[in-house]
């Protein structure tokens, strides 16, 4: 039911403006509540300050938890190291390629399952079952097929991530309100125009939910496989840092993976807004 609600809101917003609160009220609320990014930074800052204090006061063993200031200063040094940047580039590349493959093929297959109903009825339960199975454990087979190289990692990540994309795309298209489609027909919209101006904006929120899940899976699988196989980028750096007891580098790498994840999610949110226009 979510997609229909989202669609109605999305399409409705282009035709009828929702009543806005008095502008003075908005200003008053803004005056009292700090911007959300300030709250986020403040919470993170307080957390890191507490960790710094705990390490300095030896409540936390610096062998396991380095000082956040040491991690940040090390991060500055590492981020201008060409070899490290290559590792970051490998992880980014694998993630992007895996995600694009999963997104394009997932949306296409989801569309096909929605468009051809018998096909959808036949395969949707199967895709759902695969989605909840630990496909990642098939990695030895991928190594045999693709070799011990980034192609194996990308293929595994893409296959894992294509499943939620298929499911969410099919559900999103199937949940578009018939009323909206009838309105389109009544004003003689072409199939393309109907897709562009009704289907896509209405289905976008749910499709993008699938894409966000897909992106998360791609990044997790890429980093996990890099870690396990010790090939590739940041996952390998994390593994080697852990095995060589370089705790600061370990936290720098994990921190960068978190930053990459947050950046990708931010980008996909921006893309969603563009698609809904």
């Amino acid at each position: 039911m979510q997609p229909a609600t989202g669609a109605a809101l999305s399409v409705g917003s282009t035709t009828a403006a929702a009543p806005r609160p008095p502008s003075g009220g908005r200003r008053r609320r803004r005056g009292r509540v700090p911007p959300i990014w300030v709250v986020r930074l403040a919470v993170i800052g307080v957390f890191l300050a507490l960790v710094e204090l705990a390490v300095r006061m030896e409540f936390l063993n610096p062998f396991f938890v380095p000082r956040p200031t040491a991690v940040l200063s090390r991060m500055v040094v590492i981020l201008i190291d060409v070899n490290f940047l290559k590792m970051v580039g490998i992880t980014l590349g694998e993630t992007l390629v895996g995600f694009v493959i999963a997104a394009v093929s997932g949306i296409s297959l989801g569309f096909a399952l929605w468009r051809f109903r018998p096909l959808g009825d036949a395969f949707e339960p199967l895709v759902a079952a695969l989605f909840s199975s630990p496909i990642v454990l098939l990695y030895p087979i991928f190594l045999v097929i693709f070799g011990r190289n980034p192609a194996a990692i990308i293929a595994l990540a893409a296959i894992f991530a294509v499943l939620p994309t298929i499911l969410f795309t099919k559900q999103a298209l199937g949940a578009v309100s018939a009323t909206l489609l009838n309105v389109g027909r009544s004003i003689n919209l072409s199939a393309w125009a109907s897709l562009r101006h009704i289907m896509l904006p209405a289905a976008a929120p749910t499709i993008f939910t699938g894409l966000r899940i897909a992106l998360t899976y791609v990044l997790i699988v890429v980093v996990a496989m890099e870690y396990i196989l010790q090939i590739g980028g940041l996952g390998r750096v994390v593994a080697e840092s852990a095995l060589l007891f370089r705790t600061t580098e370990l936290y720098v790498s994990v921190g960068l993976i978190v930053v990459i994840s947050a950046t990708f999610i931010w980008m996909i949110n921006r893309l969603e807004r563009l698609a809904q226009r």
Binding site: W37, R40, V43, I44, F47, T216, V254, I257, V258, V259, S261, A262, I265
Partner: peptide
Amino acid sequence: MRRALTNL
């Protein structure tokens, strides 16, 4: 950012 906080 919530994800970042969770991971941290």
